[in-house]
């Protein structure tokens, strides 16, 4: 009788821990995405990716991430992305002074000029090496916004942070994964948040 009570106590603890861990997993996934509930994202067929905003110390970070994102988005075969040269032509023709964060009017005009359904803007918040003690690793953090070309409304946003110093890096060293791999992983993560 006494043995049965002890087993029940440990069982309850295990159950509570399982529920807590499941709840925490579910909550973390939905924090960094926004969808406009009135927008059918399946109708988006063409997109223009604007130059990304660069908040990092790495001068070329925004261009590098944008290059990966454009190619990755095109390679999904779901959305047609107009060439960067065409986007630049539109920016110059309309005289958009801050292409990484265009105003609503500018967005609508640009989308109409280069004939796209949506305009994608982005910000690279972190890119490059991070250090903690003697350990170092590559990290990337970026966020994207999708703006509808007709109304200039934000219809989708998502962000992702990948890389950084893991427990394995701390224990074994090695400098983390290459920057290109981390970037690709973050872009994949963002695209999964769009196509899920």
């Amino acid at each position: 009788m006494r043995t049965r009570n002890t087993m029940g106590f440990f069982g309850k603890i295990a159950l509570v821990l399982t529920v807590i861990s499941l709840v925490s997993c579910t909550a973390s996934k939905l924090i960094d995405i926004y969808f406009d509930p009135n927008m059918d994202l399946g109708a988006v067929r063409t997109a223009a990716v604007m130059p990304f905003d660069n908040l990092t110390r790495e001068q070329m970070a925004a261009d590098r991430v944008r290059d990966v994102f454009i190619n990755k988005l095109l390679s999904t075969g779901e959305i047609y992305v107009v060439p960067s040269g065409e986007v630049k032509r539109g920016i110059l023709l309309l005289g958009i002074s801050n292409p990484s964060s265009p105003s609503t009017e500018e967005t609508v005009k640009l989308a109409s000029l280069i004939k796209v359904d949506v305009i994608i803007t982005g910000t690279v918040r972190e890119y490059g090496e991070v250090r903690s003690g003697t350990t170092s690793a590559n990290i990337i953090s970026l966020s994207l916004q999708m703006i509808e070309g007709l109304s200039g409304k934000i219809i989708w946003t998502a962000s992702s942070t990948k890389g950084g110093i893991s427990t394995k890096d701390r224990l074994l060293g090695g400098g983390g994964r290459p920057m290109n791999d981390v970037t690709e992983e973050a872009v994949n993560d963002i695209l999964n948040k769009f196509f899920f």
Partner: peptide, 10 residues
């Protein structure tokens, strides 16, 4: 002049 790659016009 290709500032940022080729455009459809070019």
């Amino acid at each position: 002049i290709m500032n940022e790659g080729i455009s459809f016009a070019n």
